[in-house]
């Protein structure tokens, strides 16, 4: 008997209703089918130019949870509004000692112009390889999203990081 994984229902609904609501492990086992289905959904709902940007943002945000969430678990929600804009929302636990640096980075990005974001991207790309990617993915999310909202939510001493990109 084939055992259906918990994400199958979420991806089926995403494919059929253009709405994703998933909470659980964010590993390659989930990301691989997510990217396949999301490409189909994005291209169905937007021009290929916009769909490619939506797909790129989803890839960066989902890999961000995979690499930085303290337990490789999180939530990914995607929905479209009447203007066919996609809202991609990611939520995950974050280690408390990452918060100050991340807040500073987010603040810097939210205040930067398009030219400023391009300069930050070039600066990050030209640095010698470190363990991290100098936040290149996040710079691109800010560059290509039409609107970004982020927040840090504290619950019983544990912080959660939420980022919503609309485009």
């Amino acid at each position: 008997m084939r055992v259906e994984k918990p994400y199958h229902q979420a991806l089926k609904a995403f494919s059929e209703l253009n709405q994703l609501s998933y909470k659980g492990p964010i590993t390659d086992e989930f990301l691989t089918p997510l990217w396949i289905v999301s490409e189909e959904v994005f291209f169905k709902n937007a021009s290929s130019k916009k769909a490619k940007k939506q797909q790129h943002i989803l890839i960066e945000l989902s890999q961000n949870i995979n690499q930085h969430s303290i337990n490789k678990q999180g939530e990914i929600d995607i929905e479209f509004n009447e203007k066919k804009q996609a809202t991609i929302c990611c939520f995950n636990k974050i280690s408390n000692d990452q918060i100050v640096e991340l807040k500073h980075h987010l603040q810097e990005l939210s205040q930067a112009s398009q030219i400023g974001l391009t300069k930050l991207y070039i600066k990050g790309l030209s640095k010698k390889m470190t363990k991290k990617t100098a936040g290149l993915g996040l710079i691109q999310v800010f560059k290509y999203a039409e609107k970004i909202q982020y927040d840090f939510i504290e619950k019983n001493g544990q912080y959660f990081y939420l980022l919503k990109a609309i485009l």
């Binding site: 021009s47 290929s48 130019k49 490619k52 940007k53 790129h56 391009t118 991207y121 070039i122 790309l125 030209s126 691109q140 560059k143 290509y144």
Partner: peptide
């Protein structure tokens, strides 16, 4: 890069500048 792929175009331009 594909004509409608702005991300890939920008990435190429960034490499070109560096």
């Amino acid at each position: 890069y594909e004509e409608d792929d702005e991300v890939n175009e920008d990435t190429g331009k960034a490499f070109q500048e560096i």
